[in-house]
Structure formats: C-alpha cells, structure tokens
C-alpha cells in the first residue's frame, strides 16, 4: 500500500493537454507564427491548468516542445516543487543547475546578466538558450518598436517592465550575431517572440 501512496504523492497537480499530440501541434504552430512574426501577439487556446506561478502560455510552450532531450533552467522565484513535478511528469525533461547548460530557461522580469546564458557559437549558433520570460504585460501599447525579419515595416508592443539595462545588453549581444538569444515573453495565455534578429528601439 505504501507504494500506491508514493505514486499518488508523486502525481503533479494541475491539468495538461487533453490531447497531447494534437494540442502540441496547434501550440507549436502558434509559437512558430510568433517566432516568424516578432512582435505579433499570439494567444494559446489550450485548456491548461498549470501550477502557480507558471502562466498558461509558458506551460503550453513547455508541454509542446520539451521532452527527455531538453535541459531546462528555471529561475529560483518560479522554481517551485509543484512546477518541477508538473513539467517533469508531463515532458520528462531534465533540470539544469546552470542557465549556461540549458536549451530553455524560464524567467521572471528580473533577468540575470545575459552573459549567464548560452548564446551558441558562431559555428553552431543554434546551440543557444531560448528564454521564456513571464511578464506582467503583453499589449500593443507602444513601448517598443520592432524591426527586422518577419516584420513588414515595424510593430509596436509592450512586454511589461523588464529590468534596467536588459534591452541595451541585448543590443550589445546582437553584435555577436549569429550567436544570440531568442526570447519568448508570456503573460497569461499571450505571447510575443523576439528572435535574435529583431532590432528593438525602446520608445
């Protein structure tokens, strides 16, 4: 009987995809559209109940893209026991102890120095982290101006208040292209992607 209790204790709370295969596909298409059209606000329609403090969009991205080949780093304030249990149970991912070792990182708006993350190499620039940043605002309020691949002229959006210096650090990092970091901002069930190629002006 003790075995059963152990198993039940290990089950995560919350709710994942109803149909993992098809839901993963439709969420992926939203992520793809988001990455291909930086600055577009996309919404996730999956009926998810992720454990606090994961947003629906963050959880959907994780469930759609992660598996046993994924190394994830989670920033301390978001790294609750329930979050780890939920993500491990539904994806089989591995938790990385340093952001440098992770292919994906989940963060809040207080973002460590960008040197802490893996930006890939010039030979293999894809071996870089994708940062999923949970924020308090995703809107069309003109806080940032986006320009670059995927954008016909420009787009104006807000991704909330990110810590000071972040955008200028990012601009500095852009001089190292093709090395770089790709970002996905999430709030509730909304997301905005910022691949390394997007030129951003803070207005």
């Amino acid at each position: 009987m003790s075995i059963n209790k152990h198993v039940i204790d290990d089950l995560p709370t919350g709710k994942a995809f109803n149909n993992p295969s098809h839901d993963s596909q439709s969420v992926f298409r939203q992520i793809l559209k988001s990455m291909a059209e930086p600055g577009s606000i996309l919404t996730i329609n999956a009926q998810l109940v992720p454990p606090h403090p994961l947003s629906i969009a963050t959880a959907a991205i994780c469930l759609s893209l992660f598996d046993f080949e994924t190394n994830l780093w989670i920033e301390t304030s978001l790294k609750t026991h329930e979050v780890i249990k939920y993500l491990k149970f539904h994806t089989g991912l591995k938790i990385a102890d340093k952001p440098k070792k992770a292919s994906f990182c989940i963060l809040g708006t207080s973002i460590p120095s960008l040197d802490e993350f893996c930006a890939g190499t010039a030979d293999y620039p894809e071996n870089s982290s994708t940062l999923i940043i949970q924020t308090d605002e995703i809107s069309t309020r003109a806080q940032l101006q986006f320009e670059g691949p995927g954008i016909k002229t420009n787009r104006y959006v807000s991704v909330g208040s990110i810590n000071k210096g972040f955008w200028s650090d990012r601009e500095e990092l852009q001089s190292l292209f093709p090395r770089g970091l790709d970002l996905v901002f999430t709030q509730n069930n909304k997301m905005i992607s910022v691949p390394r190629t997007t030129k951003i002006d803070v207005l």
């Binding site: 990455m35 080949e69 894809e126 995927g150 093709p178």
Partner: peptide, 16 residues
Amino acid sequence: RMIRRAILKAVAIPGY
C-alpha cells in the same frame, strides 16, 4: 518535437 525545435532555431537565424 525535435524537428519543431530545429525549425524554431532556423526561423530565428534566417538562412542558417
């Protein structure tokens, strides 16, 4: 999933 992750990187680094 493996292919989707590769596609996202491809989109982020156009032409690579």
